[in-house]
Simulated scan of single mutants.
Amino acid sequence: MKHILPNAMLGMLGGGQLGRMFTIAARAMGYRVTVLDPDPESPAGGLADVHLRAAYDDPAALDELAATCAAVTTEFENVPAESLRRLAERTRVSPSADSVSIAQDRIAEKRYIAGAGLAVAPFLAIETAQDLEQDLSGHLPGILKLARLGYDGKGQIRVATVEETQAAFAQLGQKPCVLERRLNLKTEVSVIVARTGPGETTTFPVAENQHEAGILDISIVPARVAPAVAQRARDMALQLAEAMDYRGVLAVEFFVLGGDELVINEIAPRPHNSGHYTLDACINDQFEQQVRTLCGLPPGSTRLLSPVVMVNLLGDIWRDDEPAWDKLLSLPNAKLHLYGKKTARIGRKMGHFNVLGDAVDSTLAQALELKRMLQNP
């Protein structure tokens, strides 16, 4: 694959925080960036060289992106796959429309992962009310999840009986869903893969993830799992990336079950919230890898420089004024990242901070204390 070198214009579909951090990485490496996002207050658009304020399927905007950008990527999986296909007719697109399509639909995603020989939680596709007439007992208690557009715990309902499942399907608008059997989890982990092509692949250290209300709260690195479990997670993530012939940055989330069994929960064809620790704790971060893989360059080193804990900052801690950032910024080993969003809302990701230390447990304790101070000034 021909290398795309600095000073070239790169395109980004999506202008949220992931697009913003890509833009920062690309510009630091000497590239220019065009962001396509309809929001005039787009966090990425404000930093980009060019901000195209148009819908993701706007033909004129897509044609301008294709004509002016040496390569185009995306920050979220729900960008229209047809937009990626249109762009790919005239410029390099990574990841491909086919890869993104797999992650857009939980039914297709789980079937693909299982077809690649990798374990997923037992599931049933519930596409119509008639699908609820089959025997559901092997998948209850479970979680009914919208097949499309569900994220951060949205579009998911816990169910224990057939009647609850029927009511949940109606509550979700009778849209296609997956019914996934609820499993007894020891913990959850994730792996970020960076792949330019065959033989040009690497993974970041495994992150241990904790959620609140379906939203990622904390990532702990290195994950507190056995070395063999961490290696198996990396191997499974690489196996999936190879099966997809994936080009770009891919996040793979896992459930760790009793007996240290691993099953893949879901994937994201882009950098991921659980990889934000890489911004401060690795030689290259996940957004630099996104630039590298998009430009046909081999992935950089993913060596972990120190243990690290990432804590999400949600709009919940914004009250009448800005949070007490002085408490965080007074610590020499804490790194604050805010996303440039003008309006704070409950549950909205406004930023994150990383705490680096010498040992996982003491670093986690410090990060949790800092989180409590920000929540209760």
Score class of each variant (00 low, 15 high):
G214A: 07
I215Y: 07
I218H: 14
S219I: 12
V221K: 09
P222G: 07
A223H: 07
A223N: 02
V225S: 03
V225M: 02
V225Y: 02
V225C: 09
A226R: 14
A226E: 10
A228T: 14
A228P: 11
A228Q: 14
V229P: 04
Q231S: 13
R232V: 11
R232M: 12
R234W: 14
R234G: 02
D235Y: 13
D235A: 13
M236I: 12
Q239W: 15
Q239V: 10
L240P: 03
A241C: 11
A241H: 13
A241G: 08
E242P: 14
A243T: 10
D245V: 01
Y246F: 15
R247I: 10
G248T: 00
V249R: 00
V249H: 01
L250N: 02
L250T: 05
L250F: 14
A251W: 11
V252C: 00
V252K: 00
E253A: 09
V256S: 02
V256L: 08
G258C: 11
D260S: 09
E261G: 13
E261M: 13
E261P: 08
V263A: 06
V263Q: 13
V263N: 08
N265A: 04
N265Y: 09
E266A: 06
I267M: 07
I267Q: 04
I267V: 13
I267T: 06
A268S: 08
P269C: 06
P269D: 02
P269Y: 04
H272R: 06
S274D: 01
S274W: 08
S274L: 08
G275P: 03
Y277K: 10
T278V: 05
L279K: 09
A281N: 07
C282G: 09
C282F: 10
C282M: 07
N284A: 13
N284T: 14
N284R: 14
D285S: 10
Q286V: 07
E288K: 10
Q289T: 07
Q290N: 09
Q290Y: 06
Q290H: 14
V291S: 12
V291W: 12
R292S: 13
R292V: 10
T293N: 06
L294I: 06
L297H: 10
P299D: 01
G300Q: 05
R303A: 08
L304R: 01
L304Q: 03
S306H: 14
S306Q: 13
S306R: 09
P307S: 02
V308M: 10
M310I: 02
M310D: 00
N312H: 05
N312T: 04
L313N: 00
L313W: 02
G315T: 01
D316Y: 00
I317L: 13
I317R: 14
I317K: 15
W318E: 04
R319M: 03
D320P: 00
D321S: 12
D321H: 12
E322D: 08
E322P: 00
P323I: 08
P323W: 06
A324K: 12
W325I: 02
W325T: 03
L328C: 06
L328G: 07
L329A: 07
S330K: 11
S330N: 12
L331G: 14
L331N: 15
L331Y: 10
P332H: 01
N333P: 06
N333S: 09
K335L: 14
L336P: 02
L336R: 04
L336V: 09
L336T: 03
L336F: 01
L336Y: 04
L338S: 05
Y339V: 05
Y339H: 04
G340A: 11
K341R: 10
K342V: 13
K342D: 08
A344W: 03
R345A: 07
